[in-house]
Structures are given as structure tokens and as C-alpha cells.
Simulated scan of single mutants.
Amino acid sequence: MNLREIAQRRGPFVSLCVDASHNTEDAEQQKALRWRSIRERLAAQHVPEKTLTLLDDAISKVKAEKGRAGRLLIADSDSVLVDHMLAEPPARETVRVSALPYLLPLIEQQSREVPHVIAVVDRVGCDLYGVDEDENLIEMTAEGTAHPVHKIHHGGGWAHLSMQRRVEEVVRRNVGEAATAVRDLADRVGAQVIVLVGEVGARAALAKALDSPTARIVEVEAGARAAGADSAALEAQVQQAVRTQARQHQGQVVEQLNTARGRADGLAVEGLPETVSALLAANADTLLIDPDTVGDRSVELDPELLRGITAAQWIDDATSSRAYRADEALPVVTLLQGGSIVPVEGAVVPREGVATLLRHR
């Protein structure tokens, strides 16, 4: 389920962002104790037993890999909507029962990546892996249908030259078929970067055949189609390429904000009141947000903006008023209006931790 689909769900929601590390001998026991404590806190907030049982099942089913990790879970009355492992434990444990889902931890995780395609290529064809904005994985194989594909280095008599030309034509055709498959998959997932892996010659030929204007093409040295290839080295290089592209995307958005700052006709505003005004006018194209700076501030919003997302009886009346936590409401409304969200931190944080790139003036 993608972010917009979650934003459209009817609340209330349980949102958990917790330590899921498995780096001690008693890790399973510690996990059980943590969950028991969290469960008691949720029950005290009138979360129904059905929802607690759904979370019981989710917690018990996943066996964590060794090492440090975090875990994000979001549930409504009917199902667990999000169950996502995080690369690191959260700085602060989050246990929330509220009218809206707390999506920022998942958005922050996804912001470190961008949709991408990995093509592991040789002269016969390529294996393709596409990852979309919701981290869904699509696997494909594109195989050339013609043979042979290996150049002939000796023999062949008088036919030697024509045989070599045939081999070169087969390789060219196979690369062309692979390029078509890569382009199709890149369009399907909205890829911002295409990572090419495998034989040097095939890789270079595929890069030339692609010449993609919409996605950056990166060649990496690790990896091959053959069994036994170093998958750890490949994963590290792919991750580096994807995160580099993600940082560039974030930098471009911040640069748009900086360019618009201080200009009367600039397509950006910053600060909580200004951002809420943009959302009320359905004029928010991209929300920039720093969760630490926003903190526990609240915003007043017309519930009509939330399109039927209302609290049920197991939410206190005070929580179901027109005041919503900013770090929940601003992302949800932005998603409902078809906008995008870019987490920011450090020196580029806008006033009050939020800013918005506008659709129009």
C-alpha cells in the first residue's frame, strides 16, 4: 500500500516507530518485553483488542536479522497498513494513537532512495530489477533470441569475416532488445537512475543504446549475471548510486526554495501558518519538513480537507477536534492533494521546520 492510499484510509490509527535491534543474546526476550509494554500503553488508550491482535501477529511473524534496526508499524481498525524495517533504530520511540497516521518515518526512509532500475547485463541479455517510489520490487529477464554471441577468434575459413559480422549483428540486436526492456521498466517505476552492471562491453553498449533523458545512467564494476557474483559489493555500489541521486533530488528542491525566498513573486512560502494557507488553497506542490523542528506543534485544519478521515470512539474527543499534530496532518493533506514531501535537516531547515513550493501564485 502506497503513501497516498494510506492517507486516504479512515482512522483512527496506531503508529509505532520502535527499536527492533537484534544484537544481543537475549534479543528475543527484550523484543517480547518491549512489545508487552507498548501493548499495555495502547490498551490504556482504548485501542480495540482486534487491532492489538493484528499487531501481535505482525510483531511475532517477523524474525529480525542480526544487528541494529528500527521498525515502523501503522494499523487501523481493519489491518496493519505498514510494517517496515528501518536501517537504524529511531532516536526516540514513537507510540501514537491518533486520528491520522504518522507517515514521516516512512517518508524519511523512502527519501534516502529514488525509484531506480538495475540492469545486470551480458552479451546474451540482462536481468532487470525495478524499484518504485513505494519500494516495490519488480524482476524481469530480457534474453536475446539469436545465437551465437561469442566472437570467433580462429578458424572459419573463407567465411570468417561474414561469421564475425553475424556475431556482431546478434550482439547489437540483443543489446537493442535489452535497451527496450530497460526503458519500459524505467518508465513503469518512474526511475530517476538506471544502474548498469556486468560485462564491460555489453554495459557500455547498453548505456549507448539507452541514452535516457529522464534517468541518470550509472555503470558499476561489481556484479555479473553468472552465479557466485559478489552480491554484497553490488548492493553497496547500487545503494551509493541511488542515494547520491536522492541527495541531488533533495538539493534541487532546496535550491528551488532558496531561489524563491524573499521574492514577492516567488513560488514558495515557509512557516506553519503560510504552509497551512497553501494547503487550504490546494496550492501545495512540495512540502519540505524537518520533524525535529516541527516537534509536537499542532495546526488548525478544516476536517473537510481530510475527506472523511475522522476519529472513531476509541480516540479521545480532544484528539478528534480541528487541531491536529502538524507532523501528521501536513504530510497527509499534502498527499491527499497529490503533492510530494521532501524531509530536510541541518542548515537548510526552513522557518518553523516547514516550507512549501507552490503550484501557482
Rank of each mutant, 00 (worst) to 15 (best):
R4V: 04
Q8M: 07
Q8S: 08
P12R: 01
F13A: 03
S21G: 09
T24M: 11
D26C: 07
E28T: 13
Q30H: 15
A32C: 10
E40C: 14
L52W: 12
L52C: 13
T53K: 15
T53M: 15
T53W: 12
D57P: 07
A58V: 08
K61A: 14
V62D: 14
A64K: 13
G70Q: 03
L72V: 15
L73R: 07
D78A: 13
D78M: 08
V80P: 07
L81S: 07
H84V: 06
L86K: 03
P90Y: 09
E93P: 09
T94N: 06
V97D: 04
Y102S: 14
L103Y: 06
P105H: 12
L106A: 14
Q110C: 07
V117H: 05
A119E: 07
A119I: 10
R123T: 11
V124T: 11
V124L: 10
G125L: 04
Y129A: 11
V131C: 02
D132Y: 05
D132V: 02
E133F: 10
D134Q: 10
E135S: 04
E139N: 09
G144R: 01
T145E: 14
T145Y: 06
H147I: 05
I152P: 04
H154L: 09
H160R: 10
S162N: 05
R165P: 01
R165G: 00
V170S: 00
N174A: 00
N174K: 00
V175M: 08
A179W: 00
A181H: 00
R183L: 01
L185N: 01
L185S: 02
G190N: 01
V195M: 02
A205L: 11
A207V: 01
S212N: 01
T214Y: 11
G223Y: 07
D230K: 04
D230L: 05
S231L: 06
S231D: 10
A232R: 13
A232Y: 09
L234W: 09
L234V: 04
L234H: 05
A236M: 15
A236L: 14
V238F: 09
Q239L: 13
T244Q: 14
A246D: 07
Q252V: 05
N258E: 14
N258Q: 11
G262K: 01
D265L: 04
A268E: 03
V269K: 06
L272W: 02
S277G: 10
S277E: 13
A284Q: 06
D285C: 12
I289D: 05
D290I: 08
P291V: 08
D292S: 12
D292Q: 13
G295R: 02
R297V: 09
E300I: 13
R307F: 13
A311F: 11
A312L: 13
A312H: 11
W314V: 04
I315A: 12
D317Y: 05
A318S: 15
A318M: 12
S321N: 10
E328I: 00
A329T: 08
L330T: 02
P331S: 00
V333N: 01
L336T: 08
V342Y: 02
E345L: 09
V348T: 08
E352T: 03
E352V: 06
V354A: 06
L358V: 04
H360S: 12
R361T: 14
